[in-house]
Amino acid sequence: MSDVLARAPQSRRAAAAGRRPAPTASGARRATAIAPYLLVLPVIATMVIALGYPLVRQFVMSFQKYGLEQQFGKAPEWIGLDNYKAIFADPAVWAVITRSLLFCVAAAGLTMVVGMAVAVLMTKLVRWLRVVVQSVLLIAWAMPVIASMTIWQWLFDTNYGVINWLLVKIGLDQFKGHSWLIEPVSFLTIAVIVVVWMSVPFVAFSLNAALTQVSGEQLEAAELDGANAWERFLHIKLPTIMPVVMVVSLLQVIWDLRVFAQIYYLQQAGGVASETNLLGTYIYNLGLGQGDFGKAAAVAIFMLALTLGLTFFYVRKLAKEV
């Protein structure tokens, strides 16, 4: 549609001609040619300054010795691939990478399974209950991350948390005064629970919207042919909503790979940072905590490469409709 308007200057000149001296033909054409570039200039300038420049600088920094001395004015020294060699030779870094990937798979996988279940469930509810479920999910979705974190920390509180109370009530006495944040595995389990609780609403709404597009005739025909509910889901509904499932899962993977706020929050609340770091908090501690900006930049570049690699498919899909 936009190319229709691109041919509009002629009619504009024709219309303007009656009222005031028309600009010279070449002048008007030049103005229309420059206009879009002027319009996008602020966006491009902002992205270049606040994202492009740091990106380049980070890339350069990852090849430099950039530690505390450089923070105090010493010129950074070019050391080639040494930062990358150092981080990939460090078992602690591999532990962080493995932990991040496991966390990502667990959180994104659980979110998708639960989200899909809730989406299907929503199509089978009586009307008033569906409205209730939708409202509740919307509120949970809207909750600011840190507000949710405070609530979950309170639910899992060592002495007065309602979850420990409940577990003791059903006979699990070992949870009396149990601290969930000290053990890395239970620390990360709580992080997964919170992330899933916060992410399911988006997945459930997106998939539910897609499910309502599934053709009722096809489902009826399949039912007449004797397909049961599970078969109808597997062979008709799932293939129809597959494109949405793919995009939503990809977004979950990308979001859960970069998770920072939840982990940082729980670490501040009493977790052991060195054993619970994921990529985001590890970069933070390495750079801002220990002042080793060179290595931190190398890990960050690795993380960016990982994310952009995953993003490729999503961007290609969206770019097709541009």
């Binding site: 606040a50 970069r258 961007v315």
Partner: peptide
């Protein structure tokens, strides 16, 4: 088209992968 694709890619850049040098900047 290049701008739209750039916007899409930039949208995916995690803050966690860039804050080190944004801090330095």
């Amino acid at each position: 088209k290049a701008l739209v694709i750039t916007v899409l890619i930039v949208q995916m850049i995690p803050a966690e992968g860039l804050f080190i040098s944004q801090y330095k900047m």
